[in-house]
Write a protein that binds this DNA or RNA. Structure first.
Lengths: 239, 239
DNA sequence: GTCTATAGCGCGATAGAC
DNA sequence: GTCTATCGCGCTATAGAC
């Protein structure tokens, strides 16, 4: 199994969406004084490659994506891509690593002390916002899951399971306290994920059925409102 | 299976190859009538290829799938596959055609005269049953949508849109009659699709989070119960 | 660090004997 | 109708000049 590499340089890339979690910097050769511009170039190129790769992997899948297309989209020659990421597989892993961090963050509002209706509404809004602003991330993840999650199985059964176990306890606490109606907390999460991510993953189907060419902000607003209404009522909470 | 046989004859037509002379192939029941046995062999082979192709396309995606693997899984030599389906693309289209028919059938219970709670519960159970018994079909369709639905865009904006327009009117009728609480009928369908298909498409994620190796019948039962409960309560119906 | 040119090879598709 | 043997394209990845 390939070890995670080049994590350090990605910390400050993330395209300005949300605060980057503090990560250890690269433990490489000590930087000389006038390396600044070179490092900047490297960071910029890596960022552009990762952004291009996310888009191409999202629309073509892993096997359908070509390093040539990623390089073209990133505006760099193809061999340079292989200079920054030795293999297509390594580039894919790097893209996925970025996405996994996003996924863990979204549950932040689900805590025992919160008002259940507020917490769930905020969670749905946060997930729906990801679907709107980071559709490629959602699609790359969906594609990975569809094919059996070869690269993220460890994550799913590890960090992700622990997080959901934790949040499921919060939900159970709310049920025991009579603050929400009884429900299976795990399946509640599965439904929430599905209902929000479907607007990113299967946007073309939703747009086609709605008779539109593309989903717009109002579609996402209406979607979020519908999901929140169904779930809150479904837990016998005041909408 | 009946559908596959039907599709087989359609594939025969589209191939435009006339009947040719030859003899029986592998070991099996001796032919009572030359013509009939040839057709039987053709139907059987086409059915086996379609079944194998659905599984391989589901787990590998279109580009990740190889005709060699499909042929091996179907138990026939690779060139024979190209004899029945001239190109990989044509085989993929044939697999999709089978799946689209399934998708349209599922809404049968949603009719104005029905009791809303019964109709919706039956719909959820039907969709969940597809996720359990035809996971490959769901995955192939999901994969197609993820990549922008190049092969089924016409279907989505055509037959599928008309069907959903129709069923949405039924839902609206229920709302106007005060039989269910107000909701956007289109987004209700999107949530229902997402919540049920996620158990086929992303089964590995759900299994991993539940700490299991694979989803079993009881998982699907519990999932269906949770989805039905959330939706029925979400429409202020008695569970 | 950058990029041209190309090696190496897996894959879809076919020719042609049986 | 079946199957062996193979072709040629397009892809990942690299060697080596600048």
């Amino acid at each position: 199994m390939v070890k995670m590499v080049k994590r350090a340089s990605r910390a400050e890339l993330s395209l300005g969406r949300g605060p980057a979690k503090g990560r250890a910097r690269r433990a490489g050769p000590p930087p000389a004084n006038n390396r600044a511009s070179k490092q900047t170039i490297r960071c910029e190129n890596v960022a552009r490659i990762l952004e291009a790769a996310e888009a191409v992997f999202a629309t073509k899948g892993f096997s359908g994506a070509t390093t040539a297309e990623i390089a073209t989209r990133a505006g760099i020659p193809k061999p340079n891509l292989h200079y920054y990421f030795r293999t297509k597989q390594a580039l894919y892993r790097a893209v996925l690593d970025d996405i996994l961090a996003l996924w863990l963050d979204a549950t932040a509002s689900i805590v025992a002390e919160a008002e259940p209706a507020d917490a769930l509404r905020r969670y749905i809004e946060a997930k729906m916002a990801y679907s709107r602003t980071r559709p490629f991330a959602s699609k790359v993840f969906a594609n990975e899951l569809l094919h059996g999650a070869p690269a993220v199985k460890g994550f799913l059964g590890g960090a992700m399971k622990r997080l959901v176990d934790d949040k499921a306890k919060v939900i159970e606490g709310w049920i025991t306290a009579g603050r929400i109606a009884p429900i299976d907390p795990y399946h509640l999460f599965f439904v929430l994920w599905a209902a929000t991510q479907t607007y990113a993953d299967f946007d073309c189907q939703i747009a086609a059925v709605l008779g539109k060419k593309k989903l717009g902000p109002t579609d996402f607003d209406r979607a979020g409102e519908t999901v929140a209404t169904l779930i809150l009522r479904g837990l016998r909470l005041k909408v």
